[in-house]
Nucleic acid binder design. Structure first.
Lengths: 185, 185
DNA sequence: GAGACTATACTTAGTAC
DNA sequence: GGTACTAAGTATAGTCT
């Protein structure tokens, strides 16, 4: 027995990894013990999380599942709710939301386009232009515009050599729409 | 001074609310002190959450924002990740994901329907049935089916009094589709 | 309510098994 | 690596200001 170190001192100068591991285990245990005592004594919920950054395994108290439940309850608290937005930006759940949100934007656009193309076709089939509401009209105008732009690009490319024959062969739908169909068929 | 109670004893028999509040504060402080000491000594991250169920304000350590960050990191750990699915089912973020997922399902269906209606109209406009792929063909068949069902319902309602005149007046689109357009126009 | 005090009980680092 | 021990150090309930 070396009498160089005093017993019970909280010096902890020698920080070799193995010793630190022992200390960690001991104190973590007593920390949890105190937490449990307090939670029983004062009838509160306590959750604890501890981990060394970089490691995949995390320590949690009272246990993984219960700590998660406690954390969820905690996150549901008003105060936490206001803050959580700022700090969950990078969690996998938030990323999931973001990704889905992006997808929704895309698919909504697609649906809108399809609806307009649809209306466009229905117009040709006999649906009266009087039946369209403001949104539909706006969308259709946009579609007309797009089709016209496309057509104009094509015209420029063909550089004045476009005649009715070419239009009839390659662009039945487009040419019908953009220029001649101002009213009902 | 009443000498009935010993100093420093952890009996805590008298649990009147005000005394308990004092105890809670004291011990919570020391608990955090120990947690901090440990986190520095062993270079680990510690997060703590404590609250009385039912109250809106939660206690957290080291502070609300940092605890949230720690919890997020903790949730990102592999071990927690596997479990979290089961226990975040009811959190607002998961609910958000669920709601969006539901919406996506709905809008995807809408888009698909619109696309099919579109194809249907395009067919009438001259697109060859040879150009359709398997998915489109399947979707169109479904659309035809739906339209035919709708038509049959109408027919039943009118109960044998339906003649060509009525069809021409009320159901131009539907009647054209469901029965006569088996090939190209 | 919030500090300061204090006797008592508890925790802890180091050590030995 | 785990348990048991112990001296030194710390936390705590009660009390007073």
């Amino acid at each position: 027995m070396s009498h160089l170190a005093k017993k019970g001192c909280r010096n902890t100068r020698n920080l070799d990894e193995s010793a630190r591991k022992v200390i960690l285990k001991k104190r973590l245990a007593s920390l949890c013990k105190q937490a449990e005592e307090l939670s029983i004594l004062c009838d509160i919920k306590v959750g604890m999380v501890a981990f060394t950054p970089g490691e995949t395994k995390a320590f949690s108290w009272p246990c993984l599942t219960q700590t998660n439940a406690t954390i969820n309850e905690y996150l549901a608290c008003d105060e936490a709710k206001q803050q959580i937005k700022l700090f969950t930006q990078e969690t996998y759940l938030q990323r999931k939301v973001d990704a889905r949100e992006k997808y929704i934007g895309k698919i909504e656009q697609t649906a809108k386009e399809k609806e307009m193309e649809n209306l466009f076709n229905q117009l040709a089939w006999g649906k009266s232009i009087q039946e369209l509401d403001a949104r539909e009209t706006k969308g259709l105008l946009k579609l007309f515009e797009a089709k016209q732009t496309k057509l104009n690009e094509r015209k420029t490319k063909l550089n004045e050599h476009v005649d009715e024959n070419v239009l009839n062969q390659n662009g039945v739908n487009d040419s019908n729409a953009g220029e001649e169909n101002d009213g009902n068929p």
